[in-house]
Measured scan of single mutants.
Amino acid sequence: TEEYTYTDKEKADRAAKEWANRGYTVTVTQDGPTYRVRVG
Rank of each mutant, 00 (worst) to 15 (best):
G23A: 02
Y24E: 02
D8S: 13
T27F: 08
T25K: 11
T7Y: 14
A20Q: 13
T5H: 09
R38I: 15
Y6R: 01
R14V: 10
T27L: 08
N21D: 14
E3A: 05
Y4I: 05
Y35G: 00
V39P: 03
R14T: 11
R38M: 12
T5V: 14
R22F: 06
T29P: 00
P33M: 11
A16G: 04
E18P: 00
T25S: 11
K11F: 08
Y24D: 01
G40Y: 15
G23V: 01
D31H: 09
R22D: 04
D31S: 07
A20V: 11
Q30N: 07
T7V: 09
Y35H: 03
K11S: 15
G32P: 07
E10T: 09
T29D: 07
V39W: 04
R38V: 14
E10K: 10
T5D: 06
E2W: 15
E10H: 10
K17N: 10
E2I: 15
T7L: 12
V39Y: 03
D13H: 13
Y4L: 06
T5Y: 13
T1R: 09
D31L: 08
P33S: 13
P33F: 12
Y24R: 04
N21R: 14
G32M: 02
P33G: 13
T27W: 09
T29V: 13
V39E: 01
G23D: 02
G23I: 01
K17E: 13
V26A: 06
R22N: 07
D13W: 15
W19F: 09
A12D: 00
E2G: 13
R36T: 14
Y24V: 03
V28D: 00
E10W: 12
T27M: 08
Y24P: 00
V37E: 00
E18Q: 09
Y6F: 14
D13L: 15
T29Q: 07
V37S: 00
T25M: 11
Y6G: 03
E18H: 12
E2N: 14
A12M: 04
G32W: 03
V28A: 03
K9M: 07
R14D: 09
A12I: 01
T29F: 14
E18T: 07
K11E: 15
T7F: 13
G32D: 02
E2H: 15
W19N: 01
T25I: 12
Y35R: 01
A20G: 07
A20H: 08
T27S: 09
D31P: 01
G32F: 03
Y24M: 05
V26S: 03
T29Y: 14
W19C: 06
V28P: 00
K17F: 11
K9L: 07
W19G: 01
D31N: 07
V39C: 05
A16F: 05
D31F: 08
V37K: 00
D31Y: 08
A12Q: 01
E2V: 15
T7N: 11
G32E: 02
W19K: 01
T34C: 12
K9A: 08
V39H: 02
Y24A: 04
Q30V: 11
W19T: 01
E10F: 10
N21E: 14
Y24I: 03
N21K: 14
W19A: 03
A16R: 05
K17T: 10
A15L: 05
K17R: 13
G40Q: 15
